[in-house]
């Protein structure tokens, strides 16, 4: 979409003494002002829709897939009640672990010890309040706090990776304290056979 804009010769000439420099050249000649069509084909190799689909075993389904994949498939990212790894919850704008959170992590650690081949991705999530970027950082802190506690309980760090989804993938969408409480969580997803790097 090209648009050329210049002072009109005749308007210019009538109104003011007008030099060629001011009147003649295009003030604007932007090539292709319409942005080019978007192509994502170059990223298909890393497309999360493809990347996580290889379910090596049955363990992944116990915790559900990553929240991103659940969202892409139109499913809730809520941890299934049958999951052996339970969510850990946090206070607003906090990433320290409450007594309840530590108890949950101990139970999760017990399961990880009795399932030594399982690798887990810990997702950090936030409620919708605050800015997206701060919440991404906060979610990273929450996931890391859970990871560090699990390692102090003897789980090898290389079995535990982290990712933050900030406030982007809530399990509950009402603007209520009850909902926010559910969203401020660390979630544990079993990545059977996946690298944790």
């Amino acid at each position: 979409m090209k648009i050329r804009i210049r002072l009109a010769g005749h308007v210019c000439g009538l109104m003011f003494f007008c030099s060629l420099a001011a009147c003649a050249p295009s003030v604007t000649d932007k090539p292709g002002a319409t942005p080019a069509p978007r192509s994502d084909s170059d990223t298909s190799a890393n497309d999360p829709r493809a990347g996580e689909g290889q379910r090596g075993g049955t363990k992944e389904s116990e915790t559900g897939s990553s929240s991103l994949k659940q969202m892409q498939e139109g499913k809730s990212s809520a941890t299934p009640a049958s999951s052996p790894l339970k969510d850990v919850f946090y206070e607003f704008d906090r990433y320290d672990l409450s007594a309840d959170a530590r108890a949950t992590l101990r139970a999760n650690a017990d399961w990880l010890k009795s399932n030594p081949s399982a690798r887990v991705e810990i997702e950090g999530h936030c409620d919708e309040r605050g800015t997206n970027e701060y919440n991404l950082a906060l979610g990273a802190k929450r996931a890391q706090a859970a990871r560090e506690f699990l390692t102090t309980l003897g789980i090898p760090a290389d079995r535990l990776s982290t990712i933050s989804y900030g406030e982007e993938i809530p399990v509950c969408r009402e603007p209520t304290e009850d909902c926010w409480t559910k969203n401020r969580r660390a979630r544990f997803v079993i990545l059977q056979g996946r690298s944790t790097s």
């Binding site: 292709g32 994502d40 497309d47 933050s164």
Partner: peptide, 21 residues
């Protein structure tokens, strides 16, 4: 973007469609 699963930055040129990750 999370489009490659791990969040990172992309620089998209509006008029050429080129993108750098």
């Amino acid at each position: 973007s999370f489009k490659d699963r791990n969040q990172t930055l992309f620089l998209f040129e509006l008029y050429s469609g080129k993108e750098i990750k």
